[in-house]
Simulated scan of single mutants.
Amino acid sequence: MKPSAKFALFLIAACVVSTGTQAQKIYKCGSSYSQIPCPDGVAVDAQDPRSNTQKTEAKQASKSQAKLADAMEKERLQDETQARAADQALAKAQNKKEPTSGKPAAKKKSKEPEYFTAKPPPPAKN
């Protein structure tokens, strides 16, 4: 390995070690919180009091709730799709029954002659 590569690895390792999470003091100043102490500020303990088992259980519960929420969303989307299709089918059926103007269709009347004309009946078929 080249010396510059070793030096780069050393710097990366030093950065990783130095950026570890450390608890900082938090101060409650009236109704707000700050990292800077204020005159009447009270130091607040911000450590997570849960055990590792409790944290693991909470993560598992969150994952199972997320899966349940996804399943419920898929079911809701399917129900909405089916309802939309049923609404469209109903609308098509109603459009076929009624004309687009909304008025019932008028019967076509044959044009009546202006004057009455008597015609003999058609001959009977034998």
Rank of each mutant, 00 (worst) to 15 (best):
36 I>W: 02
97 K>F: 06
27 Y>H: 11
2 K>Y: 03
63 K>A: 15
6 K>H: 13
28 K>M: 09
66 A>Y: 00
102 G>Y: 02
56 T>C: 07
102 G>T: 03
59 K>M: 14
4 S>H: 10
118 A>H: 04
32 S>A: 13
19 T>D: 12
114 E>T: 06
105 A>F: 08
58 A>P: 00
1 M>A: 14
15 C>H: 04
17 V>L: 10
54 Q>G: 14
32 S>M: 06
69 A>H: 00
92 K>D: 15
112 E>Y: 03
62 S>A: 15
70 D>C: 02
94 Q>V: 09
93 A>G: 14
16 V>H: 05
101 S>P: 03
13 A>Y: 01
13 A>Q: 01
90 L>F: 05
85 A>I: 11
18 S>W: 02
116 F>H: 11
4 S>Q: 11
111 K>I: 09
81 T>F: 11
53 T>A: 15
37 P>E: 13
88 Q>S: 14
36 I>Y: 05
113 P>H: 01
88 Q>F: 06
15 C>T: 10
33 Y>P: 03
55 K>V: 15
68 L>V: 00
37 P>C: 06
122 P>W: 01
62 S>P: 01
76 R>W: 01
56 T>E: 10
113 P>C: 01
35 Q>R: 02
36 I>V: 15
120 P>Y: 02
33 Y>Q: 04
19 T>C: 15
72 M>P: 00
58 A>K: 05
48 D>H: 02
26 I>M: 13
87 D>M: 12
39 P>I: 03
117 T>W: 00
64 S>K: 04
20 G>C: 09
76 R>V: 03
15 C>E: 07
26 I>D: 06
6 K>M: 15
12 I>M: 12
69 A>N: 03
69 A>V: 00
72 M>D: 05
37 P>A: 14
35 Q>E: 11
94 Q>E: 14
18 S>G: 10
113 P>I: 00
20 G>Q: 10
117 T>R: 00
44 V>Q: 09
124 A>L: 03
34 S>G: 12
54 Q>Y: 04
59 K>T: 12
40 D>Q: 10
107 K>Q: 11
122 P>L: 07
22 Q>I: 09
89 A>L: 07
79 D>A: 12
35 Q>T: 12
55 K>N: 14
50 R>D: 07
49 P>F: 01
6 K>R: 14
121 P>W: 04
17 V>K: 01
93 A>E: 13
126 N>R: 06
78 Q>W: 06
40 D>C: 05
104 P>Q: 02
33 Y>I: 02
77 L>N: 08
17 V>F: 08
92 K>S: 15
47 Q>S: 15
120 P>R: 00
52 N>P: 05
18 S>E: 06
112 E>H: 03
99 P>Q: 04
5 A>F: 05
88 Q>P: 05
92 K>Y: 07
52 N>F: 04
87 D>P: 09
19 T>R: 06
106 A>C: 08
